[in-house]
Design a binder for these strands. Structure first.
Length: 735
DNA sequence: GAAGTGATGTTTTTT
DNA sequence: ACATCACTTC
């Protein structure tokens, strides 16, 4: 933000022909099919910049993303082109932008505007509580299964009421021995409602309902947002697309919408994402003159890498036809490392990294080690430490998921919304204040039978004298916190609460290494709140202040119209801010580290050198994916995503045996290895040495001794062609 | 109400 | 291997 004056250089010159067409086709529905490394983000941001340069108001543009990180990046890049007003584009995640709208419109759907957002842990805990209270068998009613089934209901617009009318789903439940699912679902929804809480799916679902039932409200937003953009469209679920259509499809709408996606990079089907949305989109908007642009040139990777990716993905059954190409030259061949054990895999990958660092002068941050499951990170960490290479592991337990952090946040949440049952459960007896399980169960049961929040029960129901006094004490304390929160900034209140709740004292008792770590985490949380209070980031979306002219209800929490407008330093504002945050977002710490992460987390990133590890059957592809052909296709897309992260160097590794679930197991190399033509592989690659029968889609025709002596199989592809997995004689190595 | 013991089930996870 | 959790025992 050095120059407030918009730069006048012609940003459109930085786009190729198709990219420019996609960026400048503003009116009417647009679909951009964007291969990996094809400059998708560039098109999106320049498109928005172009709109603003042509005189549109930034706050009339809504750009929906999946991560806070990509929203932030998009805003930064827009701002670079058009100046500070780029900040005022409504760019954010589905969840965060919809939460903002819902806070303003909460009254219409019977929610308080300071509603709590339940994270996955809260959701699971509500489900568990319901299962327990209903005395249901915990094996037949697995909390995680129930939770994801509820999520999938919401994602497919099935309310509890509709659920009982769905014969197919009720039959499913009967067959799966969980006939009471619909009751759990119904109770779950009711309980969130009475707790003044929304789970992640509610942030979408409630908005859909709002739009469904309140045409006047819907119209207001249709008028406000004149242009709608959706990034990573292949990862949207049915509900998300339905909301998008609510915004854009109505009588007389100009249907100014642009979605960007790549069906080949859809890797979240297990969470309800469906590429059907892309196909539906095409059909839904065909009558309205949809324009489709395919970005097929890859600017990221060299040819061996791009072609290998193309070959792999060609084994999938359904896809939008496109040919990704690169003009970066052949580049290095792909190297394959075979190891005996997982530990040896760690060593050989580390060796290869050292070699690359020496030979090509790669910095640590240009290198990534990717794996299918987070559990695989350990051996790599060990070897990185052994060679003294700086590394950073992503994923795993996030800061906000740590027990002590959640405990303090639960107190903060309770100070803002006493209806929040999950927060109350969490802290009512922590630190210990003699309110035990029996009492809590009684409170919960009473709350349930009267359909009221547990907090109300505390003050209204009879308890034995000792319990009564403990509860009164707790109630008085929370009321005190709540009062404090009304008149002080978030940091002052949080420090006060951390001390007065007894949480700090409790943690100070524990002098073990872990205990000290926990206290540290509380300190960093408090530091984070301090930063929030001191930071003068103006996050105004042009809603309610000067620009939009729309009449909005003021936010009762802060008295300011926009819940997140300038300078709201209240605790409520802070909680709203962090509810949808994940670690990845504030990992701003720059440094020269080798990146260790799951393939899923690597999506959208790129590295000069990439190691894809654990390429064995049962692991990658995962044993969980074998039931269905769709499952395998998704694993293959995942492999495709992994390959296409690499710019110049790609190394694939597998181990003949590894420790898994405490036992040593052997698995043949991944079928995916065989799907890459040998022409792209380094001559030293130990491919096709599998001893067990391959479980791939192709039949094994004959076993052949390859020119280099490795024993391989000839594959018969779906098109019936036989394909030898090694290059013709003479097609030697690159070096 | 706490602390100890044995059985159990393991992917990925933007929000 | 490891964490979680139901259940026992004090």
């Amino acid at each position: 933000m050095t120059s407030p004056v918009p730069q006048q250089r012609n940003y459109l010159d930085e786009l190729n022909n198709i990219q420019r067409q996609a960026a400048t086709q503003i009116d009417g529905p647009v679909l951009v099919v964007a291969g990996p490394g094809s400059g998708k983000t560039r098109v999106l941001t320049y498109r928005i910049a172009h709109m603003i340069q042509s005189g549109m108001a930034p706050w009339e543009i809504m750009a929906l993303t999946f991560t806070n990180k990509s929203a932030k990046e998009m805003k930064e890049r827009i701002t670079k082109v058009v100046g500070p007003r780029g900040e005022r584009v409504w760019a954010g995640t589905f969840h965060s932008l919809f939460a903002k709208i819902l806070r303003v419109e909460a009254e219409h759907i019977g929610y308080p505007s300071n509603f709590t957002i339940y994270d996955s842990d809260d959701t699971k805990s509500v489900v568990t509580a319901i299962i327990n209270e209903m005395n249901l068998n915990k094996e037949q009613y697995n909390a995680n299964t129930i939770k994801s089934r509820i999520s999938s209901c919401k994602s497919n617009l099935i309310t509890p009421k509709m659920y009982v009318t769905r014969a197919d789903m009720m039959e499913d439940d009967k067959a799966a021995k969980r006939p009471f699912f619909h009751q759990i679902y119904e109770k779950y929804v009711a309980r969130c409602k009475r707790s003044g809480a929304m789970d992640f799916d509610d942030l979408l679902f409630r908005l859909y309902e709002l739009f469904q039932n309140h045409p006047a409200v819907t119209n207001k937003y249709r008028q406000k947002f004149k242009y709608l953009m959706v990034d990573e469209f292949q990862d949207t679920n049915h509900l998300q697309y339905s909301i998008v259509k609510k915004f854009i499809s109505y009588e007389g709408s100009p249907r100014n919408i642009c979605v960007v996606g790549d069906d080949a990079q859809s890797i979240y089907a297990f969470r309800g994402a469906t590429i059907q949305n892309i196909l539906d989109y095409e059909n839904d908007f065909k009558p309205h003159g949809i324009r489709i642009f395919k970005l097929e040139q890859n600017y990221r990777s060299t040819e061996h890498i791009v072609q290998a990716a193309n070959e792999v993905i060609s084994f999938n059954r359904n896809q939008i036809q496109k040919t990704i190409f690169s003009d970066k030259g052949e580049g290095q061949r792909i190297r394959v490392i075979r190891a005996i054990t997982d530990s040896e895999e760690g060593k050989r990958v580390a060796d290869a990294i050292m070699e690359q660092k020496n030979r090509w002068h790669l910095a640590n941050k240009e290198i990534a080690i990717l794996y299918r499951t987070n559990a695989q990170s350990r051996v790599f960490e060990e070897w990185m430490r052994h060679y003294n290479v700086q590394y950073r592991v992503y994923g795993g337990m996030s800061f906000y998921q740590r027990k002590e952090v959640k405990d303090l946040i639960a107190y903060l949440r309770l100070a803002i919304n006493q209806q929040d049952d999950e927060a109350l459960r969490r802290v009512i007896n922590y630190p210990k204040r003699a309110i035990g399980g029996t009492t809590i169960d009684k409170i919960a049961a009473t709350a349930d039978s009267h359909s009221m929040p547990m907090w109300k029960v505390l003050t209204q129901v009879d308890f034995p004298a000792r319990t009564r006094s403990a509860i009164d004490h707790f109630v008085a304390m929370i009321k005190d916190f709540s009062e404090k929160a009304k008149s002080h900034d978030a940091h002052v209140v949080a420090e006060y609460i951390a001390r007065r709740s007894g949480l700090m004292d409790e943690l100070k008792q524990d002098t073990t290494v872990e205990g000290i770590q926990r206290l540290d985490n509380i300190t960093s949380l408090l530091d984070g709140i301090k930063t929030f209070v001191e930071n003068d980031v103006v996050e105004d979306f042009g809603f309610g202040i000067a620009d939009s002219g729309l009449e909005d209800a003021p936010n009762p929490q802060s008295g300011i119209r926009n819940p997140e407008s300038a300078m709201d330093k209240s605790l409520a504002a802070y909680l709203q801010n962090i509810a949808l945050m994940t670690d990845q977002d504030d990992q701003t710490k720059e440094g020269d580290y080798v990146t260790l992460m799951s393939v899923h987390s690597a999506k959208g990133l790129e590295f000069k050198s990439v190691f894809i590890t654990g390429l064995e059957e049962q692991l990658f592809p995962s044993f969980m994916s074998f039931d269905t052909p769709e499952g395998l296709d998704e694993e293959r897309r995942l492999f495709y995503v992994a390959i296409t992260r690499a710019e110049q160097f790609l190394t694939l590794s597998y181990a003949a045996s590894r420790y898994r679930f405490g036992q040593e197991r052997s698995n043949p190399p991944s079928r995916f290895l065989d799907e890459i033509n040998m022409a792209h592989l380094d001559a030293s690659s130990p491919i096709g040495s599998r001893s067990a029968a391959p479980a791939g889609k192709f039949e094994r025709a004959h076993a052949h001794a390859a020119p280099d002596g490795w024993f391989r199989t000839i594959k018969k592809r779906r098109d019936g062609q036989l394909q030898a997995p090694w290059p013709a004689a003479g097609g030697g190595a690159a070096h």
